[in-house]
C-alpha cells in the first residue's frame, strides 16, 4: 500500500504534473481529480470477505508502469494494492476516467470511461468459458410518484398513483453480452443483474415492498426513465480489449441529478460471480449554478426578493433604453 502511494507521487513530481496527480494516499483508485479536491470516500475495490478466504502475505511483483499518464498511474496503484491481498483465483480491478464531474452552464451530459483488468493467478487453470463483466451504475436515490391518467367525465385526469421509495434517479447496466447468456435467471435475480432484477420498492399502504417486474407502474416508471436516458441496459457496453482487459463507456445525460454515483462491477465466469469491485464518481454543480440552486432552497425568501428586484431592474432598464420621448 505505502509503496504504491510513494511510487505514484514521485512519478507525478518527476513529470511536473502535480495538478493531475491522483491522491493515492486516500485509497486506491481515485483517478484524476484537481489537486486539492477532497476525494469522496469509497469502498476498497476488493471483495470483502475475500472469496478465497486466504490471509497469507503476498510479495508484490513490480510491474512496468507507463509514465506521464495519471490514469495509468491510478490503475497501477490499484494493481499494487491488490497484489498485497491474499492469493486467489481471480481478482477484479477497475477505475474510472474521472471521479468528479462538474456541471457548468453549458453542461450537456458527460461520458466517463470505466476500465480495468481481471487479475489472474498463474497457479489457477484458465477458464474455458472466458469472463463476463456486468457494471451497474446507480445514481443518487430519490422518491418519485408514478401516476396513471384515467378518463373521468370526458377528460383525462390523474387517477391511481404509486410512490417509488428511494429509487435510483439514474441506473445504467452495462455488460459484454446479453445477461441471459452470462448466467441463469436465478443467479441474475440474486445478484440484481439487469433493470428487471433491481429492486424498486413501492409504498403500498404502510408497507414498502418490491413488486414483480411486470407490474404496470414499475414498467411505466422504467420506460419513462429510459425515454429520458436515465435508465438503460447496454448488453454490448463492455468491451474486452484483451481476454482480461476491459473497458466500458458510461454516459450520464444533462438531466441527471447532482450527487454520488456508484459503479458496481461484477466478474462472472461459468455463470457465477467470482469477483466484484466498486468505484464511484460524483456530479457537482459549480459556480453560478450551484450558488443559485443553493440560494433558492436555503434562502427562499431572500432569493424571491432578489429575483423580483431583478425583474423590476430589467423592466426599468428597458423603459430607459427604449424611451421615445
Amino acid at each position: 500500500m505505502k509503496r504504491a502511494s510513494r511510487r505514484c507521487i514521485s512519478k507525478g513530481a518527476k513529470s511536473s504534473r502535480l495538478d493531475s496527480l491522483p491522491p493515492c494516499g486516500g485509497g486506491p483508485g481515485w483517478g484524476v481529480v484537481p489537486w486539492g479536491t477532497d476525494a469522496p470516500p469509497s469502498p476498497t475495490p476488493t471483495p470483502d470477505p475475500s472469496p478465497q478466504g486466504g490471509g497469507e502475505e503476498f510479495a508484490a511483483p513490480s510491474r512496468p508502469l507507463m509514465r506521464r499518464i495519471p490514469a495509468v498511474c491510478a490503475m497501477a496503484a490499484l494493481l499494487l494494492a491488490l497484489a498485497a491481498l491474499p492469493a486467489g483465483a481471480e481478482r477484479l480491478v477497475s477505475s474510472l476516467s474521472s471521479h468528479i464531474v462538474q456541471i457548468t452552464s453549458n453542461f450537456t451530459g458527460v461520458e466517463l470511461t470505466l476500465f480495468g483488468t481481471v487479475e489472474n493467478d498463474p497457479a489457477t487453470a484458465p477458464r474455458n468459458g472466458g469472463y463476463d463483466i456486468v457494471a451497474t451504475v446507480t445514481g443518487p436515490r430519490e422518491s418519485a410518484v408514478a401516476r396513471r391518467k384515467e378518463r373521468i367525465f370526458g377528460i383525462w385526469i390523474n387517477a391511481e398513483s404509486r410512490t417509488f421509495v428511494d429509487a435510483p434517479s439514474y441506473l445504467e447496466v452495462l455488460a459484454n453480452r446479453p445477461f441471459e447468456s452470462i448466467a441463469d435467471a436465478g443467479t441474475l435475480h440474486r445478484e440484481q443483474i439487469g433493470i428487471a432484477n433491481i429492486s424498486l420498492p413501492q409504498q403500498i399502504g404502510p408497507d414498502v415492498a418490491d413488486v414483480t417486474p411486470n407490474d404496470q407502474f414499475r414498467q411505466a416508471f422504467v420506460r419513462i426513465k429510459h425515454e429520458r436516458n436515465l435508465y438503460g441496459e447496454i448488453t454490448n457496453g463492455v468491451t474486452f480489449l484483451t481476454p482480461t482487459l476491459y473497458r466500458a463507456s458510461i454516459f450520464v445525460p444533462a438531466e441527471a441529478l447532482v450527487g454520488n454515483y456508484d459503479v458496481d462491477v461484477k466478474l462472472f465466469a461459468d455463470g457465477a460471480v467470482i469477483a466484484r469491485t466498486s468505484s464511484a464518481f460524483e456530479i457537482v454543480t459549480v459556480g453560478v449554478e450551484r450558488f443559485i440552486a443553493n440560494a433558492a432552497v436555503d434562502h427562499g425568501l431572500a432569493y424571491g426578493v432578489a429575483t423580483a428586484m431583478m425583474a423590476v431592474m430589467t423592466g426599468w432598464f428597458a423603459s430607459i433604453v427604449f424611451r421615445r420621448d
Partner: peptide
C-alpha cells in the same frame, strides 16, 4: 390535451 387520449397514460414526478 384534456379530451384527446394522451400518448402516455403514466407520468412520474419526483417528490
Amino acid at each position: 390535451d384534456l379530451i384527446v387520449a394522451p400518448n402516455d397514460l403514466f407520468t412520474i414526478r419526483t417528490i
